[in-house]
């Protein structure tokens, strides 16, 4: 109940002026960008699906399941999923005007993101050592490009999180910053649900 009060108040505080849709310009713009990004990842995922069976070219492997380390990737997927939880907890704390908790949760989210990126770097290194370079065949090009784009999105998200934490050192991270945190959160969750798709479509679903 207290949360709800704060959320609505914060919204009023930040709204400044009425918009026609009742949505702030910033939030509308963020959702438009996310909608647009669906087409970006759609194209990359489709490119991968087109080449998904080509892993055997120039490599000793016959199927992607020969190279994927599912337990490891499951763990890093789980880490990214839980970073979405810490992100909503950060927003919830900022809405309560609990600056300290807000910063801690934001930093935790960034940290979980870094763990995920670290896992990705490790995976890429292992693949490379096994002879799956970026230029080896169409499969590797598509795989590294798709997961690489996702990794860049996560990295940008980490920078946004750190920017929010350290950029508000002077101005404070009170509930008037709720919209900033909310927008960073929207971006972060989007990156997370893209990984939900990538994890299922690329790693788990068997070919044939």
């Amino acid at each position: 109940m207290a949360n709800a009060t704060v959320a609505v108040d914060a919204h009023d505080d930040h709204g400044h002026h009425e918009t026609n849709t009742g949505i702030s310009n910033n939030k509308l713009a963020m959702w438009l960008f996310l909608a647009s990004d669906c087409l970006l990842f759609g194209a990359l995922i489709s490119t991968f699906l087109l080449y998904r069976t080509n892993i055997s070219d120039n490599t000793p492997f016959t199927s992607p399941s020969d190279v994927f380390d599912i337990p490891f990737t499951s763990l890093s997927s789980f880490v990214l999923l839980m970073s979405s939880l810490t992100m909503v907890l950060a927003l919830s704390a900022v809405n309560r005007d609990d600056q300290r908790a807000g910063r801690i949760w934001l930093l935790t989210t960034a940290l979980l993101g870094m763990v995920f990126i670290g896992g990705q770097v490790y995976e890429f290194t292992v693949f490379n050592a096994e002879g799956l370079g970026y230029t080896t065949n169409t499969w590797t090009s598509a795989f590294f490009t798709l997961t690489g784009f996702h990794g860049v999105h996560v990295s940008v998200g980490i920078l946004l999180l750190l920017g929010t934490v350290f950029g508000t050192r002077n101005s404070g991270l009170g509930k008037e910053k709720s919209e900033t945190v909310e927008l960073v959160g929207l971006y972060w969750h989007f990156v997370d649900i893209v990984w939900v798709i990538i994890f299922t479509v690329i790693y788990l679903i068997p070919i044939g």
């Binding site: 930040h14 400044h16 002026h17 009425e18 702030s24 310009n25 910033n26 939030k27 713009a29 963020m30 960008f33 970006l40 860049v152 999105h153 940008v156 920078l159 946004l160 920017g163 929010t164 950029g167 910053k177 919209e179 900033t180 927008l183 960073v184 971006y187």
Partner: peptide, 29 residues
């Protein structure tokens, strides 16, 4: 707070443009 037109100018609020600026980069990268 009466929502008159000059006020409507302050739409481009500082925090969100942080996000917006970030997004342009990541499209590029």
């Amino acid at each position: 707070h009466d929502g008159d037109a000059p006020d409507a100018l302050e739409a481009g609020d500082e925090p969100a443009e942080l996000v917006a600026a970030g997004t342009t980069v990541e499209t590029e990268a």
